[in-house]
Simulated scan of single mutants.
Amino acid sequence: MEKIVFYEDRDFQGKSYDCKGDSADLQSFIHRCNSVKVEAGWWVLYECNNYMGYQYVIGPGEYNDYRRWMGFNDCVRSCRIIKNAKAPYKLRLFDRPNFDGQSLELTEDMKSIQEKWLRREVQSCKVLEGSWIFFEHPNFCGRQYLLEKGEYRHHSEWGALKPTVGSIKIIIEL
């Protein structure tokens, strides 16, 4: 069963909250989040209530400081469980909105999208199998965007302000 524990202070100190499912508003349980233990499952943490703002995708493990999950600050206001993190994995990228233009199919992580894609922009995509994370920069750095099975006609549909994608990672359930 999925479970994540949020702590207000670094190194798993201070007030804590055990969460076992999606939560649109964590603020009534904790006021800030400086460390997290993921006991089971993959989760996406959001900077704002109602699954809005910056996204941080984390899997099983201990994160003693918000920078360990590439957080920009100690704001975690909502979270949800990531489903569909099992094989097979297949993703199709398009260089134009609405699945137009050149496309590229992926079945594995890409540390730098420019290895196989001449541009750093992805305008639309189809997640055919599995769940994926788009990172703003190469080497799995920068803003993160969770993409679960489905169609994304425009980069704004996965929450991005710009179509810049530097690297892509599969979410693999252990």
Rank of each mutant, 00 (worst) to 15 (best):
residue 1 M to N: 11
residue 3 K to C: 13
residue 7 Y to F: 15
residue 8 E to D: 06
residue 9 D to E: 11
residue 12 F to G: 03
residue 13 Q to F: 06
residue 13 Q to W: 03
residue 13 Q to K: 12
residue 14 G to W: 02
residue 16 S to D: 04
residue 16 S to E: 02
residue 17 Y to K: 04
residue 18 D to P: 11
residue 19 C to H: 02
residue 21 G to P: 06
residue 21 G to R: 00
residue 22 D to R: 10
residue 22 D to G: 14
residue 23 S to Y: 05
residue 23 S to Q: 11
residue 25 D to T: 04
residue 26 L to A: 03
residue 27 Q to V: 12
residue 28 S to K: 05
residue 29 F to M: 13
residue 31 H to T: 14
residue 31 H to Q: 12
residue 31 H to S: 14
residue 33 C to I: 14
residue 35 S to G: 06
residue 40 A to V: 03
residue 42 W to R: 04
residue 45 L to G: 02
residue 45 L to F: 15
residue 45 L to D: 02
residue 47 E to L: 06
residue 48 C to T: 00
residue 49 N to S: 08
residue 49 N to H: 05
residue 50 N to K: 04
residue 52 M to N: 02
residue 54 Y to E: 12
residue 54 Y to M: 10
residue 54 Y to G: 02
residue 55 Q to E: 07
residue 56 Y to C: 04
residue 56 Y to V: 09
residue 57 V to T: 03
residue 57 V to P: 06
residue 61 G to W: 00
residue 62 E to N: 09
residue 62 E to F: 00
residue 62 E to D: 11
residue 65 D to C: 12
residue 67 R to S: 12
residue 68 R to S: 15
residue 68 R to Q: 14
residue 69 W to V: 03
residue 70 M to R: 08
residue 71 G to D: 02
residue 71 G to V: 12
residue 72 F to R: 04
residue 75 C to V: 09
residue 76 V to W: 02
residue 76 V to H: 01
residue 76 V to P: 00
residue 77 R to I: 01
residue 78 S to Y: 00
residue 79 C to H: 07
residue 80 R to W: 00
residue 82 I to M: 02
residue 82 I to Q: 07
residue 83 K to Y: 09
residue 86 K to F: 12
residue 87 A to Y: 09
residue 88 P to W: 12
residue 90 K to Q: 15
residue 91 L to N: 11
residue 92 R to W: 08
residue 93 L to M: 14
residue 96 R to V: 05
residue 99 F to E: 09
residue 102 Q to W: 13
residue 103 S to R: 03
residue 105 E to R: 08
residue 107 T to K: 06
residue 108 E to I: 03
residue 111 K to H: 13
residue 117 W to R: 10
residue 119 R to K: 13
residue 120 R to M: 07
residue 123 Q to V: 06
residue 123 Q to R: 14
residue 124 S to Q: 09
residue 126 K to N: 05
residue 128 L to E: 10
residue 130 G to M: 06
residue 130 G to S: 00
residue 130 G to A: 01
residue 131 S to K: 05
residue 133 I to M: 10
residue 134 F to C: 07
residue 136 E to C: 11
residue 136 E to S: 08
residue 138 P to A: 10
residue 138 P to T: 07
residue 138 P to F: 07
residue 139 N to S: 08
residue 141 C to M: 13
residue 142 G to I: 15
residue 144 Q to A: 00
residue 144 Q to T: 00
residue 145 Y to W: 12
residue 145 Y to N: 06
residue 146 L to W: 05
residue 146 L to H: 03
residue 146 L to I: 10
residue 147 L to M: 15
residue 148 E to F: 00
residue 149 K to R: 14
residue 149 K to G: 02
residue 150 G to I: 01
residue 150 G to Y: 02
residue 151 E to V: 01
residue 153 R to L: 01
residue 154 H to I: 04
residue 156 S to G: 11
residue 156 S to N: 11
residue 157 E to I: 00
residue 157 E to K: 01
residue 158 W to A: 01
residue 158 W to M: 00
residue 162 K to M: 08
residue 165 V to I: 15
residue 165 V to K: 03
residue 165 V to Y: 12
residue 166 G to S: 06
residue 168 I to H: 09
residue 169 K to P: 11
residue 169 K to G: 05
residue 171 I to E: 14
residue 171 I to C: 15
residue 172 I to T: 15
residue 172 I to K: 15
residue 173 E to A: 03
residue 174 L to W: 08
